[in-house]
Every structure is written in structure tokens, then in C-alpha cells.
Amino acid sequence: MTLGELRPGERARVLKIGTQGMLRQRILDMGITPSVEVKLVKVAPLGDPLELTLRGYQLSLRKSDAALIEVEKM
């Protein structure tokens, strides 16, 4: 499944980042690396973007970007 399919409150482990180039580098730099554990905290009031907790901080990212990240639910 992808990060975009998680529901609020669910945790998952990142498996693969399915994009290339600048966006991939940015995703990695922000700490979404293979094997990291993330938790989906909430979805913004208008349905997008998402708020994640990982590595002790809160990150927001768009659903379209989250759909590129493969995860396994924990």
C-alpha cells in the first residue's frame, strides 16, 4: 500500500520511494527514508494535505506525493 492510503492514527514502515529527481531527494532529506516508521496524524480540513509524525517532528505533505511512497502497515 502507499502512504496516501493510511488512515489517521495508523502507523507504517516506509518501503520504497517511487519517484526520481528533486522530489525524491527532498522526500529523503526530510527523513522519509526506507525503513523509517511514520504515523499519519491527520488530514487537512479540505481533504489534503496530510500531517505525519516521523523522527520526532510533524511533516505535512500532499496526497499526490504520499501516493508515491510505498509503505507497510504496522
Binding site: 529527481g21 527532498r26 522526500i27 505535512s60 506525493d65
Partner: peptide, 10 residues
Amino acid sequence: QVSNFLMELP
């Protein structure tokens, strides 16, 4: 241009 919405919520 790449979406720049990977952003910290401090």
C-alpha cells in the same frame, strides 16, 4: 517545477 509542499509543521 516540483511541488514544494513537504513542510515542517513546527
